[in-house]
């Protein structure tokens, strides 16, 4: 059992929506090192329901993966987040999971990245 009361489970599908984050933007220009940028970029907001399904607590590490790549980020509990969706600041990190497929949409899928999420043990 995890602190939210859920059982550990297999990867679950979610859709990531990326957004522009002011603090990430400023970090890119403010510091010469990339550490602050990468720390801010490596976060995903998830709903309480999804954290429970994953059997993890707030701030746990999760792996996001699809056919284009895989990244490890920190899961943040966000009560504003609808179940099945994850919100991430758009960054070089999310670029590893995004794709451009003109048969599906004219634009890259920055607002609809289908991935599976699983806890990193």
């Amino acid at each position: 059992m995890n602190p939210l009361g859920g059982e550990k489970s297999s990867p679950i599908p979610i859709v990531i929506i990326t957004y522009k984050d002011l603090f990430l933007w400023a970090a890119r220009y403010k510091s010469v090192s990339d550490v602050d940028y990468e720390r801010r970029a490596a976060q995903i907001s998830l709903s309480a329901d999804d954290l429970k399904s994953l059997g993890i607590d707030d701030s746990a590490q999760v792996r996001l993966a699809n056919e284009f790549g895989s990244i490890v980020v920190q899961a943040k509990l966000d009560p504003r987040c609808p179940k099945g969706f994850g919100f991430m600041p758009r960054s070089r990190l999310t670029n590893r999971l995004t794709n451009y497929d003109p048969t599906r949409a004219k634009n890259p899928n920055f607002k609809r990245i289908e991935v599976t999420v699983e806890p990193v043990s």
């Binding site: 284009f68 790549g69 758009r90 070089r92 670029n95 590893r96 995004t98 794709n99 451009y100 890259p108 899928n109």
Partner: peptide, 9 residues
């Protein structure tokens, strides 16, 4: 390179 999908760039 920073703003578009890696799979494209």
């Amino acid at each position: 390179l920073s703003s578009l999908p890696d799979s494209l760039v």
